[in-house]
Design a protein around this nucleic acid. Structure first.
Lengths: 220, 220
DNA sequence: AGAATACCTATGGTAAACCCTTAAAAAAAA
DNA sequence: TTTTTTTTAAGGGTTTACCATAGGTATTCT
């Protein structure tokens, strides 16, 4: 299997090379030290696996991942970073990476990751998995650092809010709900007041950020 | 340790009771078959661990979880369901559950889950972990079923969009950026056109849904 | 049962957003 | 260097959103 190593720390890339050299089934076909040369290399060579550092000097690792998968969709991308940052992990997994390991990963785990991903499966180190799970559990808590204690939105207000977010005008909302234009305006006013928003933009932002519409029935 | 089992399928609750009976350190102090009785029980008894079915007949499991943690914040909640649904898992973990296991979990894993959570750690079965990881990888793909191919938003347009989302009026944006009101209106118009939005609400929704503001510098 | 609170309804007036068109200087891309 | 995109700006008009206020109806609390 042809492997490409992309990392701006030459020492690290060399270390990986040493590890892979002793393996008969793996062959390092290149080393890149920045995003542009990675994209260039992928355009000109057919490889199987890339070990991609998320923090390359020129281009964001996520962007590099997107680009090279456009060029060669069946390429297996394993992301590597120094840090166990949940946001990085989530972002790059969303963009096609098949695995994610940390730089302090040992020889055995590195080889296991490569061979697992090569088979078409995904691989995540235990630390990474734990990190994701923890962040899943703390998302809401972290988000509510400004303990906004949003007041309760009434049923009708939620209906109006839902339609606002769907780009209905006040008149259209009135027609949809069979109530007066002025009534809808009144609901808008109380929404603005309750959610502490100045205008429609704030209404939509606050509603989406706090997932206020979860649980509103959609009757189509 | 005092354990409460909450599941509307009596057979299942009984099964758990049988498993736990043979363990000296675990004691089932009650069984509940709906959300209301769970909340009621927690209000009147001090327990250590609850095995909570996510799909109770009357109240949504997530709501039950929220409520009982308000009453007894140090209570350890282990969510149980039939299905390996990522949305359920994420939702209930966000609301304080310490573990998540499936109903086809074996005796040993059930006990391991309870004892792990009792120690203050978290527990997730292998299947659940895999499910989360997979959904993490497929989120973007699923969301982009309507391949919207959003056109490029220029630098200035992004600045305007950012301020719109922050509830600035057109006049305020003009003052902030030291440009004319009419110029800002012009930018708004091209944003509406480019993002295919009908009004401010759509602008905000589309921007937030597509994370268009990621990478916009905040110079304060 | 009575009071307080929250909800849904509605009005007139004012402020802001949106539409259509045109256009020139500046910057970026081909 | 030429072409395209971006940023700037304007007039003039229409539509929509927001403000202050208020009455009748549920709902909840005491």
């Amino acid at each position: 299997m042809k492997v490409l190593v992309a990392d701006d720390h030459a020492m690290f890339a060399d270390g990986i090379q040493l590890i892979l050299e002793s393996e008969k089934d793996l062959e390092i076909v290149g080393k890149c030290y920045d995003g542009k040369s990675v994209i260039n290399f992928i355009s000109n060579h057919k490889i199987d696996i890339i070990l991609l550092d998320v923090n390359l000097p020129d281009i964001n690792g996520v962007e590099v991942c997107k680009e090279i998968l456009k060029i060669q969709p069946d390429l297996k991308v394993i992301a590597i970073t120094m840090f166990n940052e949940e946001s990085f992990i989530e972002e790059i997994l969303n963009n096609g990476a098949k695995g994610y390991i940390l730089k302090n990963t040992g020889r055995d785990e590195l080889l296991k990751a490569i061979r697992t991903v090569a088979k078409g499966e995904s691989y995540f180190s235990k630390e990474v998995t734990e990190s994701i799970m923890k962040s899943l559990m703390n998302k809401r808590k972290a988000g509510s650092k400004t303990i906004n204690e949003l007041p309760k939105i009434s049923r009708r207000e939620k209906e109006v809010l839902k339609l606002i977010i769907e780009e209905f005008t006040t008149q259209e909302i009135a027609d949809t709900l069979y109530i007066s234009l002025k009534t809808v305006e009144s609901h808008r006013a109380s929404l603005l007041s309750k959610l502490n928003a100045r205008n429609t933009a704030g209404l939509v932002r606050i509603a989406l950020e706090n997932k206020l519409l979860d649980g509103v029935k959609i009757e189509n």
